[in-house]
Structure formats: C-alpha cells, structure tokens
Design a protein around this nucleic acid. Structure first.
Lengths: 344, 344
DNA sequence: CTGTTAGCGCGTTCAG
DNA sequence: CTGAACGCGCTAACAG
C-alpha cells in the first residue's frame, strides 16, 4: 500500500543502467540512442515514475515557476489578466504561483518574501492600494529577480511594465463628453496615489484645461472605492446647488453607483447628466442605460506582461539598466449613458 | 554586482555557529536560546538571506504548495472560488499553483502531471467539460496525493468533494415557477454529462413529475454553452406553435440570451414567459427585468474545498477509504423575471 | 542548548 | 554513447 514513490534510481536499477542515462534519456539529451530512450521511457511509464521537480530545481538552481501578486483576484479585470498570463506561461513550461495581496501592503510584502523563498524565476505584480513604500520591490530587483509590473505600477521604480494609456484615453473620454454638449464635468476617482488613477485624473485636468472648461473643485471627488461611496457622494453632489452635467468615473462600479443615485433622484441619463465608466465590465452593456466605458484589454495586458517576463528570463545579457514599457491602447466604447445624439 | 545569493552557510560562518543552529533558529525551534535566535535573525537580515525553500522541501520531502486546476479562470464563479481557496491556504503557509484546463481534457491531464512533478501537497480540481475519462485522477489517488474536487466532480470516483445541492435547489426553482402560475416549463441546459448540469436536469424532471406537469421533449434543450446558442434555440422555440411559458436556465449567461431573444420577439417577461438563471452573476440584478437566479456561494465553496484539503494534508491517519462530501446550500433569489405577483 | 554527519533526488561534470 | 562521483541547500538524526 504505502509504497514509496519511485525515483530515478528505481528506473535505473530495473534497466541496469546508470541514473545519468535515465536522466538524460528522459530529458531528451542528444547523446542517448533512440533505442535506450525508448526503453527508459517504457520502464518509467511502467513504474509510474514521475520526475521530482524539486530535486531537479535544486540541482539546476532554477525553478520553473513564475509568481503573480495581484491586489484582487475576483474582479473581471484581474481574472482576465491572469487568464492572459497563464496562456503564455503554460505553453512555456512554467507554473504560476498566484498570491492575492487583498489591497494590503503587508500581505504584498509577505507574498514577495514567500515567492523569493520559493526561488521563482520571476514575479509579475500589480500594486495594492495601500502600497506606498517600495523597498520590498527594490530588494527583489537588487537580487536580480526579474520583476514585471502591470497596470498599477510603481512609477519611480525602474522596472519592465505593461500599462494602459490612461491619460490619453481619459482626455478622449472628456472630449467625447464635450462633443456631446456636456460642459460641467465632474470626476469620481479612486485614490490618486495609485498610478492608474493618478493618470486618469491627469487626463481629466488636461482635457478640462485644453477644452477651456472651468474647473470646479467641488466636482472632483477622490478616494471613491466602492459603489456605496459613489452613491453617497453622488447624492450629496446632485442635491447641491452647483450641479455638474456629466460624471467621468474611474471604474464601472463607481459609474453604476452614480447611475443608481441619478435614477433615484429622477435625473435623466444622458439628457440631463452624462456618465462614463472605466473597464468595460460585463454589466456595462447590460444595464439601463447602457454604460459608456473604456475597454482596457486585460487579457492582452496579461499576455504582454508574461511575454515580457519570459523575455527577461531567457535573456542571458539582460541588464537591470534597460527596461521596456509596453503600452496597451485602450478603447472608448460609446453607449447610451453619454450619447445625447441618440436621444435628442 | 553579480554576487551569489547568500545561503545558510554564509549566515552560519559569519556567526561562527553551525548551519543546524541557523536553521533551527530561523524555524523557531524551541531548543534554541532566545539570544541566539535574535543574533541569527539579525545577521540573516544583514546578509539579506532568504531561505531556499526548494532545498528545504527536498530535504523535508514535502512541498508547501497546493495545486488548483480549473476549467476556466476568468468567470465570476471560478475566480470567486479561487479567492475563497486562497483565503484559507495563504494563512496556512501554502503557495497556490494555479492551472487552467480551458475546458480541455488533454490540458487537464498535462496539468495534473505537472503538479505531480512539482510534488504539490495536494490538488484541488474542478473538471473540464471534455473530461470523460478519469484515469489521470485515479493515478493521483493511487499515489496518495490528496485530491479534493468541487462543483464539477467525478461522481464515480471516491474523493473528498464540495458540491451544491443542485438537484434540490432546481426543484425549488421549478416549484417557484409553478407557484407563480407557470405550467409549461422548458429547460435550457449545458451538457448533462457534467455532474452539476446532470443534477439540475434531474431536479427539473423530478419537479415536473411531482408537480404533475407534462413533460414536453421539445422543451428540453441540452448542450447550450454560450449566449449565442441560447438566443438561437430560444428563437426557434418561441416561434414554434407549442411554446413554453417559462424557461429554467442552467446559467445566467444562458438566461441572458433567452431574455434578449424574448425581448426581440416582443414577449413580456414575466407576464407571458418567466425566466430563471443560475449562478447569480453580477449582472443578474442589473438587467431589465432583473433576473431570478441561484446563488451558489462560490467563495464558500472555495473556502471549504481548501479546508478539506488542509484537513487531509494534516491528517496522518487519513484513509483513502473514507471521504467527506461537503454540501453548500444554494439559495434561490427571486427577482422580476419570474415574479408575476409584482406585475399582476 | 548546540554541533556533526548524512542524505533528500536529481543533473552535470569528467572519464571512459 | 554511457557510468561514477559529486554536490545543489537544507533539515533531521544522533551525539554531546
């Protein structure tokens, strides 16, 4: 019953060859005859032999796994990123060790340490909300462990990364609102110390300035993280005297909250107020009114982050000094919530 | 620059102690004085020493990772399951190696082999659509590698598992339709060779029989996998003479397709036709009409699958002969798409 | 409380 | 084309 697992020694013994021969045969070494390879494979299968990657990794000094640390795992955006990453790393023979920081700085630091201890070939990372220090990342870099960041990157750190052109697409979104006749545009944003939200805010401000729209500080709502917070802030804003006529939101969830509040207050969308979201979540084309949003191509982001990682791992002359940044171009998807032309 | 990583030997040398002392100190062994522990930790930090888990795992004969194989990774249901799993395995000190079978039998088999080679402590699995043979699983079991299945389990295999009471909740859903006055109830189902769909179909048939409703074979649509297929089949069904007055769908995506077709055909929901989905996807409460659906508590399923796994791993006298099955009770969430009382 | 010794399973020299 | 010998970094006996 409780027989021990067969090792390479068992296979070798049964064939009366050395373990080196078995090792080479199973790894497809060219200096082994086809006949021997066949025999070895046959016996290995008979014994239900499965190579011990732990031992192999120790010997090789190299592990076939890549670590991934994400702020969340159960969001449309992030799960599609993972999907993209996996589609590249799996065919390349890498395991994916996934860790979720839960937007918690401490857990992010611990996860980094755990992955480092596991000797992963590299780490793909998107920062948690709470991460403001980056010593844990500098540490990784100084140890020559390949690091690729995506979406929420650490701007000041010199690493390979995959990002959206958040600023540019936000400018485009605001221009679209302007073209639809909206002039009093508010923004509901998640915390702007985070790279992507900082850039969206930047785009908002740039667009307002270049379009000659007045900037009203009461219309800049930051630190919105949940639908409930969005509803709350929207209720206050739209009951005030000085109301905006459009809201640019840095996520679809926020936009959903805004829309729900506007409906509750009996405000017509988009006739009275236009709304734009961000991320193109599944529900955005299903709600009433359908939500104008920004497609970020998360799967593509994952694919590119993984490719970048494989490039680094495979590149013997990889220099810490040179870094690539891949820009994935997002797309503004215009739907009813901002489209006055449809209704007037 | 390219200095080699510090090992336990470097730490020991610097302190003029043995490697065992360092090892024990860092692992919190009780027979080491606090003073020594402190000194060791200090020097380890100075040298930026990070233990090599690969070597430790080889020595211990035990790896601190758990493998997870899922048919998909970017679905609300599955990503919430992962979230639940991670919330249990992380605090217990396990890495999560995630692999996506992409509903492909071959990839599932390969992933099993890869995880086995990685010496994972156990495997948590939900079957791919295409999996009909289970030799790869029997193999795992025969090697005493803990296996926990959830949701789409292999019924004939004797393993620990976490499931919903699909049959019972489906009966309840059909009874609800009956209570709302629907009598001609159709079913749109994904392939019924898969455990969960088989049970939903079973519940449908049981309920029809016990309620004394006539069973019309034209109203049993199987093998629906996508929204488009659902739309197509709904179009045919609702243009036919012999129309049902309600549709029970085995997923929200299918229900969405049905609803879209009904709207297109100008059929009133729920006045003329009632619709029920399955999974309680985010969009189900956001569409028009809001969709009656079944909450499966995916996060709970993940949590329980992970707990089951830790139990097995921790249990020295674990017997292959005894298996637990945890039932997560789903909940019928009644919304407008089936609720005639609201509208009549 | 600490040190010595041995070996986990494999891949890779170096010899033939 | 194949074998012998070594050691990757660590932990667990055993010994003091």
């Amino acid at each position: 019953m409780e027989k021990k697992k067969n090792t390479i020694v068992d296979v070798a013994r049964k064939l009366n060859v050395s373990t080196s021969t078995v090792s080479r045969a199973l790894n497809g070494h060219h200096s082994i005859s086809e006949r021997t390879k066949l025999k070895v494979r046959k016996v290995a299968a008979e014994l239900n032999y499965s190579p011990n990657n732990v031992a192999a990794s120790l010997r090789r000094g190299k592990v076939n796994s890549i670590g991934v640390i994400l702020p969340r795992i159960n969001s449309t955006f992030m799960s599609n990123c993972i999907f993209g990453i996996e589609s590249v790393t799996y065919p390349a023979g890498y395991n994916l060790i996934i860790s979720c920081s839960n937007e918690d700085y401490k857990k992010e630091v611990q996860s980094i340490a755990a992955l480092k201890a596991s000797q992963v070939s590299g780490i793909i990372l998107s920062l948690s909300n709470e991460t403001k220090k980056t010593a844990h990342l500098s540490n990784i870099i100084s140890q020559n462990i390949p690091l690729v960041m995506f979406d929420r990157i650490a701007e000041l750190l010199n690493v390979d990364s995959v990002v959206n052109d958040d600023t540019k697409i936000t400018v485009q979104a605001i221009e679209h609102l302007h073209a639809m006749g909206f002039r009093k545009i508010a923004i509901f944003s998640s915390p702007t110390h985070i790279y992507v939200y900082k850039n969206r805010m930047k785009g908002y401000l740039e667009a307002l300035s270049s379009l000659g729209l007045t900037l009203n500080h009461n219309w800049i709502i930051e630190n919105i993280q949940t639908k409930e917070q969005a509803q709350h802030s929207a209720e206050i804003l739209f009951k005030a005297k000085d109301k905006p006529d459009a809201v640019f939101c840095t996520s679809d969830t926020i936009a959903l909250g805004v829309i729900q509040t506007l409906k509750k207050l009996g405000i017509q969308i988009p006739q009275e107020v236009g709304v734009i979201g961000y991320s193109n979540d599944t529900f955005s084309e299903l709600i009433q009114p359908t939500l104008t949003s920004i497609e970020q191509y998360p799967q593509e982001m994952g694919v590119n982050a993984a490719k970048l990682m494989l490039d680094i791992i495979g590149d013997k002359n990889w220099s810490m000094q040179v870094h690539k940044q891949i820009h994935i171009k997002p797309r503004l998807i215009i739907r009813d919530s901002s489209n006055r032309l449809l209704t007037e």
